[in-house]
Design a protein around this nucleic acid. Structure first.
Lengths: 178, 178, 178, 178
DNA sequence: GATGAATGAGTATTCATTCAT
DNA sequence: AATGAATGAATACTCATTCAT
């Protein structure tokens, strides 16, 4: 069993649950059953560990759109994308909460700033590619609206309203864009 | 000058800039020019200070809708509300960032949990009151969509995209709801 | 009793005996009967504590020459100076060892570099003032020789030879310069 | 190329520059391009590595006097010795600084204590052999003075005064002893 | 109301060393 | 001979909080 991977897994979990600052490296070690020394052997410091996790998560998110890349019709593709994002969101709640929280905390935000910008651009561009095929002239604004909607849903669903009607809103959203 | 108020002001500023966990009480003292003893004299502990700030901010946010409470037409009132929220958002960027960040960090989230729920319910209900007058039967979903849109815009505008076209999106949103 | 002074006293002692790097702050606390927090309350970090001690020691050394400042005859003054230095050296062995060791260790040397240069210049100039009155033209070289002799004696007496005949050498030195 | 030798070379360099305590074994490995395992394969522990270097250096220093061993006239031999020592000192600055620093730090001093005493006796005796031929009865004191002078010059030249006039002082010293 | 000395628990990080391969 | 994963003990430093004045 690969201990480096194990450390990453445990760290993701704890960072998501307790937050980065409030997760001592010692807690990771305890749960992973490894020594502190080993964590610092594999990851130069705690920040590097955070970055490694963020990069991993970015990859995972980047792959959400992959299966529908070849769908011709942009509207259909958009619908598939919405479907995929929202179901990924409810499947990996913890991961998405982790993402939101590290992107909004000043301390972690700084540690990750380049990676955050990269990811956001990537997400925007991928979406914009679809909107360009729907309406060339004001795709940018449409994309911004779309991304805002998705992010707002994430926020309310994951953090603010326990009774958030995800299913219903998913249907509405798909209807709207189809 | 009231030193208790001064402490609150400085704390808001620092919590917004550096985050709650990363702002030592000593930093607040230094910037406010007061002793540590005094901070703990006025606020039993650091958490109480955070709660005091959150309560203050909730009041401020609650007041945003006040001026248009008497607008009869619900659509017009909605438009006025959007206008008010977005302009408040761009005027008090720091405060809104502070809000998002304390509501998403596990540690601060726990400290504030009752206050967060209270505020979110209040915001939902206020908005829902308007939507009920537009469409009685599915007001809840409409409200959820509306609140998601606002929150998503906040997230993207304040944190994710430096070039977020707030103005344009404001217009679109107002058109849509009018 | 002043705890700040107490910390300094204990630290001098331990740094001299064990060396700066090998003296954990915790050891100082234990011996002084204070908490770690207090040490860092009074001295921002361990380096600042070292500097405080070095400054103190420089003052002490600077005072060695004071009593004979008004001796007219330069040769007589030199003799008095030698006498004073060597007796101070055998009285405060620990302090002088501490000095030599922090000035030669790369790590501590860097922390103290400005203070070391300052002290060395001060010592050189003070001595040179005397030699200038003995022989104006080549005082610099004479001073360098004199300072080397003193430092060499310190080194051999304090560190290298347990049977170093300090008394005899003192006499010789005084004869030579008188 | 012999990796054991390589490790020694790199270690000398780093110990001299950064000090023994402040040079992690890992730094040696990095610079030498070898694994940690190998260092501990060749040298049982870090102290053994230090001792190996010190022994090497002692040999080098011991050889300084060799070429003039057969000079008959003691005064001439003394002059040659001074010449040789001072030129070796300015040629191998780093090595001499290393020597001074490990001999004065309590921690390294302890590790090397037997080797230090041995070396100091050897140096004393070698010099004393010469002085005995100059003046049988008080050779010991003369030797102590001589060694002190040399050590004091080393200290001031290598550590304390950037503008130390080594050349001039060398001439004076040679004149004095001739 | 106001200060600042004092505490103690917590936390990231370093590093020599061991050992299986 | 050579590697590098793994350990564990040590260490500087942070920070909320208390309390006497």
């Amino acid at each position: 069993m690969n201990k480096k991977e194990l450390i990453l897994d445990v760290a993701i979990d704890l960072f998501a649950k307790e937050g980065f600052e409030k997760t001592p490296v010692s807690a990771i070690c305890e749960r992973a059953g490894v020594s502190k020394g080993l964590v610092f052997h594999h990851f130069k410091n705690k920040n590097v560990l955070l970055r490694a996790i963020f990069i991993r998560t970015t990859e995972m998110i980047g792959n959400i759109g992959k299966p529908h890349e070849k769908v011709r019709d942009p509207k259909e593709r958009l619908a598939a994308l919405i479907e995929a994002i929202l179901s990924s969101m409810s499947e990996h709640r913890k991961l998405y909460k982790f993402n939101l929280n590290v992107m909004l905390q000043p301390a972690t935000r700084e540690i990750l700033s380049d990676l955050i910008n990269e990811r956001n651009s990537m997400l925007f561009d991928t979406t914009d590619d679809i909107f360009k095929r729907i309406s060339e002239d004001n795709s940018k604004t449409l994309t911004h609206v779309f991304v805002s909607e998705i992010n707002g849903i994430a926020l309310n669903y994951l953090y603010f309203y326990d009774d958030f009607p995800l299913e219903e809103i998913r249907k509405q959203l798909i209807n709207k864009y189809k």
